[in-house]
């Protein structure tokens, strides 16, 4: 046996370095802060798990976490089915395809903060189009927390459903025609075609859509910040931004990070369970000599 060449390490080194700077070092810094008390004179004092205990005993934290979960749940429950529904109804050929794709991409191109601003104005009961229309029903996002929630959800659905739709569409167009033909011959109903042909063949991209949308919605910040600026902190992100103590903030960040990591992992494992092949299939593809 030949000794394994150690040169491989040199090749991996740039990546390790990059990851160190972008992820490991910042994260470790935060970990370090989370176990210290930073006095006003920039003195660090070791406090152990004090901040963690404080955060975990804070009612505000649990309320915020709960709201986050509810928000993500609602978002996913609306966007995934809606996105799939839109994808199913998008044209498969002709001039409609590019038109549809461009229109669907538009909301995705708008920066987050601008989205917040748009909806802030849109929902205003004095001048906003939606606000004025809904005024008679007692709508007022600035005064009523339920209306604020409603606004946030509408905002997110408007902003991100097209992402789900585009991903689902990509999954749909990759289904060979023979599957639809076979289903017709087998006498399958439209619903069965959806259930047994389209949905399983979209599963991969939908996993990605769910993960992306979950992580994003769980980290929602700019939108509530824009809509509820100055109000009570609602979500973990806004809660975080209003926490003054550095160490506590750090501890909260770590907990926040771990929750997202854990939930993403759970989603991924559940959705790819009993999946014969991994997402990346090597197959026979290779470089053309």
């Amino acid at each position: 046996m030949k000794p394994v060449s150690q040169k491989a390490w040199f090749l991996v080194a740039p990546v390790l370095l990059l990851v160190a700077f972008t992820a490991i070092i910042p994260l470790m810094t935060v970990v370090n802060y989370s176990v210290q008390y930073v006095a006003t004179n920039a003195q660090f004092h070791w406090v152990g798990d004090l901040w963690y205990r404080e955060v975990l005993h804070s009612e505000k934290f649990w309320n915020a976490l709960w709201r986050n979960l509810v928000f993500s749940g609602i978002i996913l429950a609306i966007q995934i089915p809606l996105g799939v529904l839109i994808a199913l109804n998008m044209p498969r050929k002709g001039w409609g395809v590019p038109t549809c794709l461009v229109l669907m991409s538009l909301p995705l191109l708008i920066p987050w903060y601008v989205v917040g601003m748009i909806w802030q104005m849109f929902g205003r009961v004095d001048i906003g189009l939606m606000g004025v229309m809904l005024r008679d029903f007692g709508y007022n996002y600035e005064g009523d927390p339920l209306d604020a929630w409603f606004t946030l959800i509408i905002m997110d659905v408007w902003h991100w459903t097209s992402l789900v739709a585009l991903l689902a569409y990509a999954g749909l167009v990759s289904i060979p025609n023979a599957y639809y033909q076979a289903a017709r011959i087998d006498g399958a109903s439209g619903w069965q075609v959806f259930l047994h042909v389209q949905l399983p063949r979209m599963a991969r991209v939908l996993t990605i859509a769910v993960l992306l949308r979950f992580m994003d919605s769980f980290m929602i910040f700019t939108e509530p910040f824009a809509v509820i600026a100055g109000g009570d902190p609602v979500f973990l992100s806004t809660e975080l931004s209003q926490t003054v103590e550095l160490g506590q903030r750090a501890a909260m960040s770590i907990i926040y990070f771990l929750i997202i990591l854990l939930l993403s992992w759970v989603f991924y494992t559940v959705m790819t369970r009993d999946d014969g092949e991994p997402i990346q299939t090597g197959g026979k593809s290779g470089s053309a000599s």
């Binding site: 060979p176 023979a178 599957y179 011959i185 087998d186 042909v197 399983p200």
Partner: peptide
Amino acid sequence: IAQVFQFPVVYDSMTVRENLAFPLRN
């Protein structure tokens, strides 16, 4: 009529038995 295609067309989410039963159940 029944038709068999060049490349395998199966319902991934079903077992082999369910696949075969599908046209009959419908």
